[in-house]
C-alpha cells in the first residue's frame, strides 16, 4: 500500500527568510485586533454582560420584527431578537430590569413565555439564562485571570524545561494567538461567552503543543550541531517537524470541522474559536515562537551547564557522522 505523504521527504524550505515580513504582518494583525477590541468591543454574551436570554423553538419561522415588537410591548425594555442556528430557533435577549432584582427577571421571563405561547401556538421555550450584573462581573474577572495565569503558567513551565528564551518566545506566541483570536471575535461580533474563554484556555494548551514539539527539536539540534548558525538550525528544525505539524493540525481540523459544521449550535462560538486558534497557532509556532529564539540569542551554549566542572564531566558525546545520537 502506498501511504499518503502530505509533505515530501527532506524538505528544505527557508521559512525564516520571511520572518521579517511575517513579523510585520503579525504586528499589524495584533494592532488591528487591539484596535477592533477597543473600538467595536467584544459582543459579550449574558455570561459577561449580565441579562437574560430566552431560547425558543417555533413551529413556523416567526417574523422577527413582529416578535421584537410584541416583546417590546411587554414593558420589560428593548429585546434583541435573532435567529439561532435555524429560522425556527430564536434567541431573545433582554436587559435585566434595574429594579425588582430576581423577582423582576422572573416576571420578565414569565411574561415572554406567556406572550410567545399566546401569539405563536406550539412555540417552545428551550432554555432560559439569567445572569445578574454582579455575577457577570465576577465571571469576567475569573475568566481574565484564568487566561493570564494559564499563559504565565505554561511559559514558566517551558522556561524550567528549556531556557528562559524559550519561555519568552512561548509567552509572545501565546499572546499573539489569544489577541488575534479576540480580534476575530471583535471583528465578526460573534457572541463572546464563557465557552469561548474555555476555548481560549484550550488553545493555550494546544497551541503550545506545536511550539513544544519544535522547541524540543531545536534543543536537540542545538546539542547535535554545535557549530551551526542559529537561523539555519531553526529552519532545519521547522522543516524536520513540518510533516508532524501538518498531520497533527490536519487531524485537529478534521475533528473540529465536523463539530463546527454538524455539532450543536449552542457551542458554535466555542468550536469557531478553536478552529481559528488551530490555524493561527500553527502559523505562530513557525513565525513567532521560533524567531524569538534568534532575537533572544539562543546558542548551543544555552544548554550547557553553567559551571565548568560539570561541563568537563559530561565528556565527549557519542555522535555518528550523520549527527544522530546512538
Amino acid at each position: 500500500m502506498r501511504l499518503l505523504k502530505l509533505v515530501p521527504d527532506n524538505t528544505n524550505i527557508d521559512f525564516l527568510k520571511w520572518r521579517g515580513i511575517a513579523f510585520a504582518i503579525s504586528s499589524l494583525l495584533i494592532a488591528a485586533s487591539v484596535a477592533l477590541i477597543a473600538i467595536k468591543g467584544l459582543n459579550f454574551g449574558v455570561d459577561f454582560a449580565g441579562g437574560q436570554v430566552i431560547q425558543a423553538t417555533f413551529q413556523q419561522p416567526p417574523a422577527l420584527d413582529d416578535l421584537r415588537e410584541r416583546i417590546g410591548d411587554l414593558g420589560h425594555g428593548e429585546a434583541a431578537v435573532q435567529e439561532f442556528g435555524s429560522p425556527r430557533n430564536i434567541s431573545i435577549r433582554m436587559q435585566l430590569p434595574d429594579e425588582g432584582g430576581a423577582e423582576g427577571a422572573n416576571r420578565a421571563a414569565q411574561d415572554v413565555r406567556n406572550a410567545l405561547e399566546a401569539a405563536y401556538p406550539g412555540a417552545r421555550i428551550d432554555a432560559v439564562e439569567t445572569v445578574s450584573g454582579k455575577v457577570s462581573e465576577e465571571l469576567v474577572r475569573a475568566g481574565g485571570l484564568a487566561l493570564l495565569l494559564a499563559m504565565i503558567g505554561v511559559s514558566i513551565y517551558i522556561w524550567i524545561r528549556f531556557e528562559w528564551q524559550f519561555g519568552v518566545g512561548a509567552l509572545f506566541s501565546l499572546f499573539h494567538d489569544v489577541t488575534i483570536t479576540l480580534g476575530f471575535f471583535a471583528l465578526t461580533q460573534m457572541e463572546f461567552d464563557l465557552n469561548v474563554v474555555a476555548a481560549l484556555l484550550t488553545l493555550i494548551g494546544y497551541s503550545l503543543n506545536d511550539t513544544i514539539v519544535i522547541y524540543d527539536r531545536i534543543r536537540e539540534n542545538l546539542r547535535k550541531f554545535r557549530k551551526m548558525e542559529i537561523a539555519p538550525l531553526i529552519n532545519l528544525s521547522v522543516n524536520e517537524t513540518l510533516s508532524r505539524t501538518i498531520a497533527t493540525n490536519l487531524s485537529m481540523l478534521l475533528a473540529l470541522g465536523a463539530l463546527f459544521f454538524l455539532g450543536p449550535d449552542v457551542i458554535f462560538s466555542f468550536t469557531a474559536a478553536l478552529l481559528i486558534s488551530v490555524i493561527i497557532g500553527t502559523y505562530s509556532t513557525a513565525y513567532i515562537a521560533a524567531p524569538w529564539l534568534i532575537w533572544l540569542k539562543v546558542t548551543s551554549d544555552s544548554f550547557l551547564p553553567k559551571d565548568p566542572v560539570s561541563r568537563a564531566e559530561r565528556g565527549p558525546r557519542n555522535e555518528t557522522p550523520d549527527g544522530a545520537r546512538v
Binding site: 417552545r124 428551550d126 445578574s132
Partner: peptide
C-alpha cells in the same frame, strides 16, 4: 435569598 444566576435547559434542547 435572591437568584443571581439561572440556567435552564429544556429536555428537548
Amino acid at each position: 435569598l435572591t437568584v443571581v444566576e439561572e440556567r435552564t435547559v429544556g429536555p428537548d434542547l
